[in-house]
Design a protein around this nucleic acid. Sequence first.
RNA 1: GACUGCAUAGCUCAGUUGGCUAGAGCGCUACAUUGACAUUGUAGAGGUCAGAGGUUCGAAUCCUCUUGCGGUCACCA
Length: 906
Amino acid sequence: MDKAYEPKKYEDDIYKSWEESGFFNPDVCIEKGITTKDSKPFTIVLPPPNVTGTLHMGHAAMLAIEDVMVRYHRMKGDKTLWVPGTDHAAVATESKVEKMLIESGEFKKPKEELGREKFLERVAQFAQESHDTIVNQSKKMGSSLDWSREAFTLDEKRNLAVKTVFKKMYDDGLIYRGYRVINWSVKGQSTCSDDELVHIERPAKMYYFKYSKDFPITIATTRPETKLGDTAVAVNPTGKYQKYIGQEFEVQDVGQKGHILKIKIIGDDHVDESFGTGALGVTPAHSPVDFEMYLKQKALGNDIGLIQVIGEDGKMTDNAGSDYSGFSVEEAREKFVNYLSVEGLLEKEEDIMQNVGTSDRFKDVVEPLPKTQWFIDVNKKFQIDETNFLVGLQLTNVKNGEEYSLKELMQKVVTTGQIKIVPERFDKVYFNWIDNLRDWCISRQIWYGHQIPVWYRKGNGERGTGNGEIHVGVEAPEGEGWAQDPDTLDTWFSAGLWTFSALGWPEKTADLQNFHPTSVLETGYDILFFWVARMILMTTYTLGQVPFETVYLHGLVRDEQGRKMSKSLGNIINPLDMIEKYGTDATRLSLLLGNTPGSDMKLSEEKIGGFRNFANKLWNMARFIEMTLEAEEKKLVKDINLPEAKTLSDKWILQKLNEVSNVVVSNLDSMNLSYAGEKLRDFTWNDLADWYLEIAKIEGEKSEILNYALNTVLKLWHPFMPFVTEAIWQEFYGKENILMVEKFPLSTEQNLEIKDFEIIQNVIVGIRSIKGDYKIDPVKKLNVTISAGDKKDLLSQNSAIISKLARLENLHIEEKIAKPDQSVSFVESGLEIFVELAGVVDFAKEKEKLGKEIEQLTKYIAGLEGKLSNSGFVSSAPASIIEQETNKLSEAKEKLEKLNKQFSNI
RNA sequence: GACUGCAUAGCUCAGUUGGCUAGAGCGCUACAUUGACAUUGUAGAGGUCAGAGGUUCGAAUCCUCUUGCGGUCACCA
């Protein structure tokens, strides 16, 4: 073995050997007897990265976390599957390619110049390249994904799933075509859903004005130009303007000569008297709230009308009047405000802070516009019909024939605990989101994505705005004159089907039977709504199953100052660079340890470097063990049983090893990956390397235990650090033996008494501390005398260890012995340890130190005594606690007695 | 505005159902160093667990309030 572990030398070959073994594929594992057909399944579908570029640290964290879970379960013998895939990411990818084509100078308006088909070819080509990069990077991370099952959200199989679900929802009346005010991105020339809006706060002006001199009510707005399309003024039904309700005004010359507004006064509870002027100018075409009011009035038989004054291009329409038509919103605003002020209609301008919705993708402020679009109705009830489901109805407390809305179903599976969210606090966030959820606009006016499976003819406009024939189906309709809706679906529609579409639905595949519902959905909390919630919606509706049993949410990876990593800040840590520099295992550990689910993690290069050191430490421990065995002319054995403990230290390390195995198992089961890893690191470095390996050098003849401990530790570490552990394993046992599919050390009941060893440790540490305190060269060998009482045999049996590790010249152990001259002492577990320090003992210092210790101990004893004499404590505390406290007290008292004696002897 | 998270050593964080003289890693200080490892070892310093009340025999842990910093959602014209 090399002196230092060099990740680069091993990683690629090892990954290749895993791939060649076929063990990423559960079918192969069954074939080779690693698991069985009937074993418990463990499934994760990878949150598919967008094909928009390369992987970042967030992806790396995701891959690392999921790979730990997957490798752990595979080693446990579960039928384990991790399905890879990528997401077409519709808008994100399309706009990225468009931008690239423009930047390359090849095109000015790529979509126009190329046409739909050619443009999509370009996008597909880019997506393919991105995909290849992503796959390679995922492999670099060591991800044990089953590549034979790879899926893409826009491939044929997934397209079939999308069309099938669309049709089903349409037939159930859950997907409908509706004329609504939607969020329009002028820049992107497409709708976006409510969830894709990012609200930003910005300064704005609030204008107070009247439509005309004789109009009775003043209104307030931040968007005066839209007021050219007002059709009503809403007032509180019981407020100060109550008397006007029902009146209708024909206002002449608004904004320009001849522009007439017909304004009805309506009552609406939504209007808050204390805000603005207490009256609201209703612009049904350009505000979702106003549109709701419009619908409400219409339902009451009062059609107030709707006038669209802003077009899809963000410019004023003819409806705004000839003076405004064709002007930009900003220009029109200036013009109209100027008009109002000249006419004396403007009462007040006020500077305010305003929240506006911007498109997350296109970064422009969205324009609310009325358009006919496709929506998913989240409130409409539908009947549960178990014959629709592949494997029947599997939702807790949901019965066949009952009626649910999609919202209710989404709530139900979490309230019943059928889906568990980790950390739990995100339950509330989830429910809060559902409570505020409105119908989901799913149609997008872009080309890259699943084209809506709807065809129109005769009397229908391009997007079916008329009342002609319509065909919704998986296949195109037969006959002449049909045209498919040119729009595509929101990328989250297909992503919502991911757990089951990736497993082959709507075909009745074996994978669906075997691996769905999936076990864990692990992803960043930032896409809880976008994706996780929508998968729950789609899967419960389509399959009558939950998509997954547990949602594990990780936090965002931030820089060491806690800032988001971004190009503009220049603080991006690239996972591939870190892998190159420190190795994959170190990079993985830095993302796995030292954080908790759901909270953001701060990452620094230093941290990664620290774990590189650890990987090397593990390597060198293995190297040492190999050399030790060689020296003893022993061979490392792969399948070694629990060896017999010959010495106290053996007992101790075997017990510790067992304890840490149990901790790792139970914490991996409860998904505390970080805690499991930290405990394992502490054991490996502190107990095994720093103590036991040092003792092995002294006691010798430990080949079996060293062999056993190393094997166990490599297995325990494998899910976290697959490469270095596998490298060591194959170095020892040959390339035909693959650690990845070895049996994970399961928890056992073993209870060896290790207290005695801890006494030895404390004696050693105590002596070392004295050396440190007196600034004595660690190499200098000292004489130590121990007054050991009934522990004399124990200490004598372990005197070699004490002498060596504490670097002693002579060690005298007696049952009872007086303090030698020129010595300092300490008390440990009833022992008095005297360290001879000829010439350097500073009695004053010694006395001061002892005094401090006595003082502290006295306080401590007083506290314990107080506790134990407190009748409340004695009567209400559990017996085990009382016993524990009693023991503490007697130990402390014994120690105090000895310290007092020493103190008076100085 | 509603909801929500966080505040523990210089830094990053553990601390699982209340039972600690409050821990780890990094950093810092001192010392060591030829055969597993300087990507190392040994030891040390460093904390009124944000503040104030409360519940309890017992609070870093539970409750209330205050302060500071985040996050998510939201139709206030």
